[in-house]
Design a protein around this nucleic acid. Structure first.
Lengths: 117, 117
DNA sequence: CGTCATGTTTCCTAAACACTACACACTTAC
DNA sequence: GTAAGTGTGTAGTGTTTAGGAAACATGACG
């Protein structure tokens, strides 16, 4: 289950092809972790990093933070906070939407965005 | 920030009034923790318990698990799983609904429940 | 009085989490 | 050919999580 590592490695190497500032060492330095640690992360030798480090990594590699967090088995803490503020409401909504097809959820997103409440 | 403890204590004592099977010790035994631990939980002397223990406690005290988890600063792992399976979609939806009034969210819940996709 | 049952206090800990430090081997650039 | 840069391996660290064990104090009951 190290989707996380391979995903990061692939993304980084793809950037590295055109820009040698995306070596493991340089990326590690920019996101503020030790090279050895990032190496192990990419090869799934350790668990995915903390939320904060994951988000920095996602930004650095131009990835969607929520997706990368998900690959790391996490959910963004700001989303969790939204749920925790109105647990009954959001729990019900999310469970209701668990098996809904993407397009149905998307339709709701658009509906809400066009703010007709 | 020990909303959790006082909430549990209040709920338990209110049950205890009419039914002495809801002493701290007996509840602790039924949910499978040591009395000393539950005591500390109720007085906020330790952090809220794990998700599993919180859910057992909620059921025992006839409380909504999602609400009690929220008071403990947690979000049910089954909800997290739903989000992690389609992170972009659900992240967008939840952020969109962050500031929506309850009745607007409820309307959507009903809409979805009446399954018109 | 003795013995339940109640809640509380103190002390301890095993496991998981999130990393750092540093030495190593190999390639590339000049 | 050496200096710089690349990725990797081994070992160890501090912190947090999630409790358990056992003794203690208090009150009610028969």
């Amino acid at each position: 289950m190290t989707q996380f590592g391979t995903h990061v490695n692939t993304a980084r190497r793809s950037l590295q092809e055109h820009d040698r500032r995306y070596s493991l060492r340089q990326v590690a330095k920019r996101i503020g972790v030790e090279p050895g640690y990032l190496s192990k992360i990419e090869r799934g030798q350790v668990a995915p990093p903390s939320e904060a480090a994951t988000v920095r990594l996602a930004k650095e590699l131009d990835q969607d933070p929520d997706v990368l967090l998900a690959l790391g088995g996490k959910v963004s803490s700001d989303l969790q906070e939204v749920i925790r503020k109105r647990p009954r409401l959001f729990a019900q909504l999310i469970r209701e939407l668990r098996d809904a097809p993407d397009h149905a959820v998307l339709r709701i997103v658009r509906e809400v965005r066009d703010g007709d409440w």
